[in-house]
């Protein structure tokens, strides 16, 4: 693309779908780290299920990006052979794995966001995006339910779990705004009918869900944070992202051209 020319509608759509896919991919990667590390064996299995759902979403969407951007690239080209500056995910999902309370705070926010996002993609002008949304909407309802049940138990459990869950909400707070930023690709996508709503229009419903759970869990919503993450949609990431990619990509990159 030459400087100054407007991106083709397909290229604009590709950028949007890529951002949705990258969020799912990076969060799947982080959740994969829980397997063998969860607080009980049943939870190893539950988090693996969530990770597998997100991985499935990312794979289906990457395949579509390869068609929309005209490159014909496949899922592994996107996942394994892009550098940090080319990733479009928000900072929330790339943060290092913390304690279980942090994971549940992150999952509650992310699933609440995805719940609204996929609802807004159900009638997408792109049949693949609509199809993925239909399947993912069901998966995300389960993720939301899982996060909700744990936030309730941690918030209204022991003194220690209450303190940790409250701290986890404070930890997540600076990463929330970025989910709902109206980035350029999303604006283009709304114009193209790819998605019915801008990210900012998803916030009220998503935040409402989070607030309802937080209040039922005897917790309080954090005060507005003093800083907020930004830049993920433009490929500006936080420190953990490079390490995440190194782990994700190093085998593929060591054997260029190999199939697995």
């Amino acid at each position: 693309m030459t400087a100054g020319s407007a991106p083709s509608p397909e290229a604009g759509s590709a950028a949007y779908v890529l951002a949705v896919a990258d969020d799912a991919m990076v969060y799947a990667q982080r959740l994969g780290e829980w397997l063998t590390n969860a607080p009980q064996i049943e939870e190893d299995m539950a988090l693996a299920n969530v990770s597998l759902d997100l991985l499935g979403q990312a794979r289906a969407l990457y395949a579509r990006v390869g068609e929309l951007d005209g490159s014909g690239r496949g899922e592994d080209d996107y996942a394994m052979f892009r550098d940090e500056r080319q990733w479009r995910n928000v900072h929330l999902v790339e943060q290092e794995r913390g304690d279980f309370a942090r994971e549940m705070a992150r999952m509650l926010w992310f699933a609440s966001y995805q719940h609204e996002l996929y609802a807004a993609q159900l009638a997408s002008s792109d049949p693949v995006v609509a199809g993925v949304a239909g399947k993912a909407a069901k998966e995300v309802r389960y993720h939301l339910d899982h996060a909700r049940h744990w936030v309730l138990r941690l918030g209204d459990g022991t003194d220690e779990s209450h303190r940790r869950m409250q701290a986890a909400l404070e930890w997540a707070a600076p990463y929330v705004d970025e989910l709902f930023d109206d980035h350029a690709a999303a604006v283009t996508a709304v114009e193209a009918g790819l998605v019915a709503r801008l990210p900012s229009e998803l916030r009220e419903a998503a935040q409402g869900r989070v607030e309802a759970v937080v209040s039922e869990a005897t917790l309080t919503m954090p005060d507005p944070p003093t800083w907020r993450s930004r830049g993920g949609r433009d490929g500006i990431h936080s420190r953990p992202m490079g390490y995440l990619l190194a782990e994700l990509q190093h085998i593929s990159r060591s054997h260029p051209g190999a199939t697995w």
């Binding site: 049943e42 299995m45 539950a46 049940h149």
Partner: peptide, 20 residues
């Protein structure tokens, strides 16, 4: 069978353990 602190968690664990 499985262990769970309450019925709701038991139901969810049952889903993950026995219906993959």
């Amino acid at each position: 069978s499985l262990h769970a602190p309450d019925a709701e968690m038991a139901l969810r664990n049952g889903r993950d353990v026995y219906t993959r």
